[in-house]
Amino acid sequence: MRVETRRGTPAEVRAALFFLAPGLFVIVVFFFLPIAASFLLSATDFDLYALADPSNARVTGVSNYRALLSDPVFLTALKNTLVFVLLGSPLTVLVALSAALLVNARLARAKGFFRTTFFAPVVTTLVAVAVVFRYVYHPRFGLLNRGLTLIGLPAVDWLGDPRFSLLAIVLLAIWKNFGFSTILFVAGLQGIPESLYEAARLDGAGRWQQFRRITLPLLAPTMLLVGLTRTIDYFQLFAEPYVMTSGGPLNSTLTMSLLMYKEGFRFWNMGRGAAIAFVLFAVILVATVIQFRVQKGGET
């Protein structure tokens, strides 16, 4: 990749050490070490008593993990998180790609304005917009039901009905996040040479064929990046249910991160909380590997 022209002089190596030390210190002490410690913590029964005196904690091996797997509340959180990701990621990518195609269309006017508008929700504060959406979702006074009834659809108790509560959070997540992926898609679309489309048109390819044969394949790297960031991000869903539903009704919006927070920082069952964190980590890793595989398979 890179040609090594010469080795660093001792002065250069010393300088490198000096420049790297503060940043790496922060990352190792406040990120990598706690991750390793988290793994150890998950093998103990560290709780409120251990918080007072660490010698109260005992090593319990995999018993936290075993207990989780037979705990219906945890399994519900796991299921909710998976449903949220499986529903939220593809829908966000779909909305983002549609928006990008529209913004990038030759016929579109005021592209800059629309790009900025679509991106605005991304920079907003999640907690604040979750508060706003609580009211947007209000069964009687909310904007969404008002809109739905105007076009003849039935009103829904978005956050109060366990059948719709997770969907309500998915909709908020799409609204909040699609603009980020749209920006990446627009950049990807602009990287596709116009000559390819001209050649395809000369060969008599229609719009759909151009999209299938040129746009989608050349957008594959962006698609992988967008898919991965969305998935990893969505697996950590926390603030929306915390602010809007506290995980309810009937645990229908309880996520793994929210459960980890409750176990770890509300009930101080830190061993158990760490085990939840690690299961979450494992699930994210598996999802990442699967996405890489699928993408690689799709390319050939």
């Binding site: 990352i27 988290s38 980890m260 770890g264 920082f265 760490a274 979450l280 990442t288």
Partner: peptide, 20 residues
Amino acid sequence: VLLLGMVIPVQIAMLPLFLL
């Protein structure tokens, strides 16, 4: 090695970080 760390969510580190 650092790049590998980029896929790890901060939540994983949070409980021990609090103890630290």
